[in-house]
């Protein structure tokens, strides 16, 4: 199953390389990985999505990550209530005649048009991976010229705001 792991690391040169080298060395798959600073100076958050990872492999990943001197905290968000999002930029063929159709398609996704050219427009979409996948599928018939996706980044939810029912019903990944 897919796993989402959040890793807090010292923001030092070479740390990302250490983490990816570890995954390579141990034969763990990374589906996507995002890095960014946290609110604490000197610390960064790396969010890693791993595919096809069973419980024992996951345990190894977490233990191996903790062995890294620059890793301070590892959290497996998979089975926790979490908010997880990715951002996609999609450039679609869009002769003037089709623009209104495309606008209608993207509207329910709360995506927005952030650049308009002569023959194409660029759409920005934010959401869960499945939502982005669905939007891309709908836009494909119009001709996608270029696509950039950030991959998932995630945070644990403030548990107080989550009810048990929602946790179960939404398969542990909660979206708004």
């Amino acid at each position: 199953m897919n796993r989402v792991i959040s890793v807090i690391v010292n923001n030092k040169a070479g740390v990302l390389n250490r983490i990816t080298a570890l995954f390579l060395r141990k034969g763990f798959n990374i589906q996507n990985l995002t890095v960014g600073v946290t609110d604490t100076p000197g610390l960064s958050r790396i969010t890693i999505v791993m595919n096809d990872t069973d419980a024992s492999a996951l345990e190894q990943v977490i233990k191996q990550l903790y062995k890294q001197i620059d890793v301070l905290k590892v959290t497996d968000l998979t089975d926790q209530p979490m908010v997880a999002r990715e951002l996609a930029l999609i450039r679609v063929n869009s002769p003037v005649a089709q623009r209104s159709v495309i606008t209608t398609i993207i509207e329910p996704f709360r995506a927005s048009i952030i650049d308009v050219g002569r023959d194409s427009i660029t759409i920005q979409a934010v959401g869960r991976t499945e939502k982005i996948d669905a939007l891309i599928a709908l836009l494909r018939p119009y001709g996608i010229k270029e696509l950039a996706r950030t991959g998932l980044t995630a945070l644990a939810r403030d548990v107080a705001t989550v009810t048990e029912a929602r946790r179960v019903s939404e398969n542990n990944v909660i979206s708004i």
Partner: peptide, 14 residues
């Protein structure tokens, strides 16, 4: 040598 030795050291520094 940092790149080379990362997988075969407990830790390394430049």
């Amino acid at each position: 040598i940092i790149g080379i030795s990362t997988p075969i050291t407990k830790h390394n520094y430049q």
